[in-house]
Amino acid sequence: MAAEPLLSVRDLSVAFGAVEAVRGLTFDVYDGDVLALVGESGAGKSLTARALLGMAPRGATVGGSVRLRKADGADEPVGARADRLWGRRVALVPQDALSALSPVHPVGDQLAAAVRSVTGLSRKDARARAALALERVGIPAARCRAYPHELSGGMRQRAVIAMATVNEPELIVADEPTTALDPDLREQVLHVLAEQREAAGAALVLVTHDLDAVRAHAGRVLVMYAGGHVESGPVDRVFGRPRGPYTAGLLAALTPVERGRRLPVIAGSPPAPGALPSGCAFAPRCPLADDRCLTERPEPQAVGGRGGGHEVVHEVSCHRWDAVPESAAGLFAGEHA
């Protein structure tokens, strides 16, 4: 019998008036799971992550359901109870640590306040726990009195990871946590995040553009385009044999090529949220699109078996998935290197 998911998302949509920026997403996150949300800028990844935490922007209308399993086996809607769940069961690692941290309070005090808001510990005990949390992410306890601007970018990002994990939440959402960091720091921060997630026993939803980080740190991936589902499943299945042309294009663009050969690129740009085509959103850029793709929007369909110990299948939203070749670089031939 399959495990019950920790987080259950059904037909999630986020709209601004008549414009749907996120369209009908359905997925599960299991205990200890690492699910990556990937796609081009504007795909709706960060908006999806915020909706999971009840943090959709003002003016947005959220549809569908996002439910977190309770200890008694029932579940509860996240949006309606976000104030009670924050810091206790769910936590956020934001993209911009400098904006997320208060500039007028020492980092240690901010962590201690997060501890006290959940545990009710004394100030002394909360400060001790905050110092330990910082040490666990590689920041000396002596830097507890430092203000955010006195820390490097990598240290600030580790500090917000410490804040997110200090109360051992069940679910962490990391929204592009390494965007402003150089490659070496990126891997350090992702390693720290993985360590702290494992120590807390938490599940992680990771929003990222870094497909190499997905390979290294995620168990499952959900590829998004124009606010909707493109492809999902275990990382080794989706990246090893992508069945959606869009996923294949993303991966082909990262494949090293010999000097003088053409670089694979996905031509064109994603559609504006308010100007989606009537059929598949990717059809205007897809080299395999036919008349059906231009007129009929595809629904997710299973194209692979189970993986990761859960009832997780490889799914793709594409009419032409069976026409995607094993080596798809040729579909997206671009400019000379």
Score class of each variant (00 low, 15 high):
115 V>W: 01
107 V>T: 09
145 R>Q: 12
134 L>A: 03
84 R>H: 12
104 V>N: 06
90 V>Q: 05
134 L>S: 03
110 Q>C: 08
136 R>P: 03
122 S>E: 12
99 S>C: 08
83 D>L: 14
91 A>R: 11
122 S>Y: 07
85 L>W: 08
110 Q>E: 11
103 P>L: 04
124 K>D: 15
104 V>D: 10
122 S>G: 15
102 S>K: 09
146 A>L: 02
106 P>M: 08
104 V>M: 12
108 G>Y: 03
103 P>F: 11
130 A>E: 02
141 A>E: 10
107 V>F: 04
133 A>I: 12
145 R>D: 14
104 V>L: 14
140 P>Y: 01
112 A>S: 13
117 S>P: 00
123 R>P: 04
128 A>N: 04
126 A>H: 05
115 V>R: 02
130 A>C: 08
119 T>Y: 10
97 A>P: 09
139 I>Y: 02
81 R>P: 10
90 V>L: 14
85 L>Q: 09
108 G>I: 04
139 I>C: 05
145 R>K: 11
97 A>V: 07
133 A>L: 11
120 G>S: 02
89 R>W: 11
85 L>N: 01
133 A>P: 08
99 S>D: 14
88 R>A: 12
117 S>F: 10
138 G>A: 05
105 H>G: 04
114 A>K: 02
108 G>F: 06
100 A>I: 05
95 Q>V: 05
126 A>D: 12
120 G>Y: 03
137 V>W: 10
130 A>Q: 00
106 P>E: 01
105 H>P: 00
127 R>Q: 15
144 C>Q: 06
127 R>P: 04
99 S>V: 07
144 C>V: 03
110 Q>Y: 11
100 A>W: 12
106 P>F: 06
99 S>P: 01
113 A>P: 00
146 A>I: 08
100 A>K: 00
108 G>K: 04
122 S>T: 12
109 D>V: 08
115 V>G: 03
90 V>R: 07
98 L>G: 00
102 S>I: 02
113 A>I: 13
103 P>M: 12
84 R>C: 06
92 L>D: 02
94 P>C: 04
125 D>K: 13
125 D>A: 15
84 R>N: 09
106 P>C: 01
83 D>R: 15
115 V>K: 05
124 K>S: 14
116 R>A: 09
87 G>N: 02
85 L>A: 03
132 L>C: 07
115 V>E: 02
133 A>Q: 10
90 V>K: 06
127 R>Y: 04
98 L>F: 12
81 R>V: 03
146 A>H: 14
111 L>A: 03
122 S>R: 07
134 L>Q: 03
98 L>H: 01
111 L>W: 07
84 R>A: 15
80 A>W: 10
98 L>Y: 09
128 A>W: 06
100 A>D: 06
123 R>V: 13
90 V>Y: 02
116 R>V: 06
117 S>N: 13
97 A>F: 06
124 K>Q: 14
83 D>G: 01
87 G>K: 05
136 R>I: 07
81 R>E: 15
90 V>E: 06
117 S>V: 09
146 A>C: 14
97 A>N: 05
93 V>R: 02
83 D>T: 13
88 R>Y: 08
142 A>M: 08
124 K>T: 15
106 P>L: 01
92 L>K: 00
83 D>I: 15
93 V>Y: 07
82 A>E: 13
122 S>P: 09
82 A>M: 15
